[in-house]
Design a protein around this nucleic acid. Structure first.
Length: 338
DNA sequence: TAGGCCATCTGGTCCT
DNA sequence: AGGACCAGATGGCCTA
């Protein structure tokens, strides 16, 4: 198996047998490609006289002291390379003893060591390629996901977590009969905290109508109270603690947990400007014909790109710096994915 | 300087 | 036998 990284080429591995105990017997392994490599034989059983150019670039360059095969005439096991008669005569097939006459020598320790070393190098090369292909796939996933801010590069684990939450959120959007304002930045910042989104959290963070929706879509005002409520907060908190008290007993909420969510809630309750800004990379779903300019769009308008936006919520809150382990959980969505 | 992230090496296991 | 896959170890780089 050739490699695109190190350029390993089986035939390129040349070396001599410094203890002159080259195997003259016929072993099963002698037929393998590796044995051909180490014996210097090509597919037909003869040593290739003209190594390929690619071969010169591979293991020979990797090894500091490439060695050559011993073409000594005394070597009874190695077909003669310099025999001029071979140029004019058809090559004779090598004959091996069989049965009781067969003599099989074990490889010398140095030969075994070299074989092991070469196998290890090939395995390392395969492993390197495998990890590179894995990273390539991860990179494709990473660029598919919205990165907010754009210069943010998610780590591997964050990419996988965000992919999970992103798919979860999109599925909730598709399944929802409400008009959901899905804030991808909020979703990402939530993910960066190392949290796995659940339906409860999704409802608390995204399903509630934004102040803009309440203001501009009065026909939906009756569906939910404006902004986030204590129930929303409670439903979010419930994910983190089994001892938390129900809403109505404000003192039951720890300051630590409140601060944990404060940034998100405050961002959600932030009063929008009028006309309502369309957040970059924020997918807004509205009824058909209601606000066609914004319907189902990821559009970023030039005037918004020029805006000097205040520090983002995820940069202020502890969400941005904390990456707790994404442990197992046992709620009704309990699937350990990452 | 400690900790996080990453690439690479390595040996073991499983499968073909 | 050999390749794929996996997890542990290790060292480099970067940042708070």
């Amino acid at each position: 198996m050739s490699s695109c990284y190190s350029g390993f080429e089986d035939r390129s591995f040349e070396f001599d047998d410094d203890d002159s105990s080259f195997d003259s017997g016929y072993e099963k392994s002698f037929e393998t490609a590796e044995s051909r490599i180490f014996s210097g034989f090509d597919e037909s059983g003869y040593y290739p006289c003209t190594p390929t150019k690619q071969a010169d670039l591979s293991l020979n360059s990797y090894l500091s002291t490439p060695k050559k095969l011993d073409f000594s005439p005394n070597s009874t096991s190695t077909p003669s390379k310099n025999g001029e008669q071979e140029e004019n005569q058809p090559r004779q097939k090598r004959k091996y003893a069989v049965g009781a006459n067969r003599v099989t020598r074990s490889r010398s320790p140095s030969s075994v060591a070299r074989i092991k070393k070469f196998r290890r190098m090939k395995a390392n090369d395969r492993e390197r390629n495998r990890m590179h292909s894995l990273n390539d796939a991860l990179e494709k996933l990473r660029v598919t996901l919205p990165a907010l801010p754009e210069e943010t590069k998610l780590t591997k684990i964050e990419t996988l977590r965000f992919a999970h939450n992103y798919i979860f959120a999109l599925r909730e959007v598709l399944n929802s009969e409400e008009h959901i304002n899905l804030d991808l930045e909020k979703l990402q910042s939530f993910t960066l905290s190392g949290e796995r989104i659940t339906k409860e959290l999704f409802d608390a963070l995204f399903v509630n109508p934004s102040p803009y929706q309440m203001h501009n879509m009065p026909h939906l005002a009756h569906t939910r109270p404006p902004g986030f409520t204590a129930n929303d907060f409670y439903s979010s908190m419930r994910h983190y603690s089994s001892t938390i008290q129900p809403p109505g007993n404000a003192s039951a909420y720890s300051e630590e947990k409140y601060n944990y969510f404060k940034g998100t809630f405050e961002a959600a309750l932030q009063k929008p400007s009028v006309p309502p800004p369309l957040q970059p990379n924020c997918r807004q779903l509205y009824p058909d014909g209601y606000t066609p300019a914004y319907s189902g769009s990821y559009t970023v308008y030039p005037h918004q790109q020029q805006q000097q936006s205040p520090p983002q919520m995820h940069q202020q809150s502890s969400f941005y710096s904390q990456t707790p382990p994404w442990g197992e959980y046992n709620d009704h969505y309990g699937q350990t994915i990452v």
